[in-house]
Amino acid sequence: MNKKGSAAKVKLNSFDDLFGSSEMQTAGAEQIINAPLAELHDFKNHPFRVVDDEKMEETTESIRQYGVLVPGIARPRTGGGYELIAGHRRKRGSQRAGKLEMPVIVRNYSDDEATIIMVDSNIQREDILPSEKAKAYKMKYEAMKHQGKKSGKNTLDEVGETAGESAKTVQRYIWISRLSDSLLDMVDAKKIGIMQAVDLSFLSEDAQQWVLVAIQETNVVITTQQSAMLKESDKKGELTFPMVRMMLEKEKTVERKVVIKTERINNYFPATYSREEIENIIYQLLENWKSTQ
């Protein structure tokens, strides 16, 4: 199914909509300007990392040679300057390349419109961490509700459509956004799985702290069975720190499966013996062997 992302629905449907016709620019409805980097302020609670990695080095080199080819998107900021909606990596690349300004499209977007554009312009990147996706989906979901969207599966589908993710997946990430930053760091580091993180997101702040301490002290890897037990116990109001330690330190039983081939068994028992008789004799022999160990 070919769906347009929700950011595209926020007045970004044509070339003139994106870059602005000369008539609109003249009328002051929007502007394309070369904004000083010092006047471009990060989007409030921007959930996506801007790191100086190999990809940033490539971005920097491209900007050094050719400049910023695609303008960022910004809006006027109370107190002066502009709030950058899309283009945080381009801004950082410009700084590293020694530039003093970069091109941006300036528009008077509402808070909700700006949030949706900010999320959709970043959510399709390949290197997004679970914590980034969780916070971004929550921000977009809240923005859509403010716009009058009803809560429910259809809204969750719209939240995830830009990245091609289902309502169920989006809901899981929104739940995960309730985890403490320290537990989210563990999810990013793959020390806690996504499904386990969903269960832990239902724990109280105190219970989440207990889980964090227990993991740090024991280096345990939480199973889905353990996370479900923690969630259920906390829901009943029964969970304590000693209980968390007990649940997470409980020794896992290793399932062992032994197959004895029929042709080998038949060498030791007459054909008249039943299966039950054979099993009883084997168990008795094993008991005798165990007693001699």
Rank of each mutant, 00 (worst) to 15 (best):
M1Q: 10
K3F: 08
G5N: 09
S6Y: 13
A8W: 08
K11I: 15
N13R: 14
D16N: 15
I32M: 15
I33N: 13
N34V: 00
P36S: 10
E39A: 15
E39T: 12
E39R: 08
L40R: 08
D42W: 09
F43R: 04
F43Y: 14
F43E: 00
N45H: 12
P47N: 08
P47S: 05
V51I: 12
D53S: 08
M56T: 05
E58I: 14
E58M: 13
T60H: 05
S62W: 11
I63P: 00
Q65R: 15
V68L: 10
V70Y: 09
V70D: 13
P71D: 11
G72E: 10
R75P: 03
P76E: 04
P76W: 09
R77H: 03
T78F: 00
G79E: 09
G81D: 05
E83K: 09
L84E: 00
A86N: 14
G87D: 05
G87S: 11
H88E: 06
H88M: 13
R90F: 05
K91Q: 06
K91S: 01
G93F: 06
Q95W: 05
A97Q: 02
G98E: 01
K99D: 02
M102E: 04
P103T: 12
P103V: 06
V104C: 03
I105V: 15
I105T: 13
S110C: 07
D112I: 07
T115D: 03
M118Q: 10
M118H: 00
V119S: 02
S121I: 02
S121A: 08
R125F: 14
I128E: 02
S131Q: 02
S131T: 11
S131C: 04
K133W: 04
K133Q: 09
K135I: 07
A136T: 05
M139P: 00
M139E: 05
K140V: 00
E142Y: 08
K145G: 08
H146W: 03
G148T: 13
S151P: 06
S151M: 11
G152R: 06
K153P: 04
D157F: 06
E158S: 10
G160V: 03
V170D: 01
Q171N: 04
I174S: 01
L179Y: 08
S180V: 04
S182C: 01
L184H: 10
D185L: 04
M186F: 12
A189V: 09
K191C: 06
I192R: 07
G193T: 11
I194E: 13
Q196T: 05
L200T: 02
S201F: 07
S201M: 09
S201N: 12
A207P: 05
A207M: 06
Q208K: 08
Q208L: 01
A214K: 03
I215D: 02
V220C: 08
T224W: 06
T224D: 11
Q226W: 10
M229R: 14
M229W: 07
K231N: 14
D234W: 02
K235M: 13
E238H: 14
L239V: 12
P242A: 07
M247R: 01
E249C: 07
K250F: 07
T253C: 03
V254F: 10
E255I: 15
K257A: 08
V258L: 15
V259L: 12
K261A: 07
N267M: 09
F269M: 05
Y273W: 13
R275Q: 11
I282W: 04
Q284Y: 12
L285W: 13
L286M: 13
K290T: 05
S291V: 09
T292F: 03
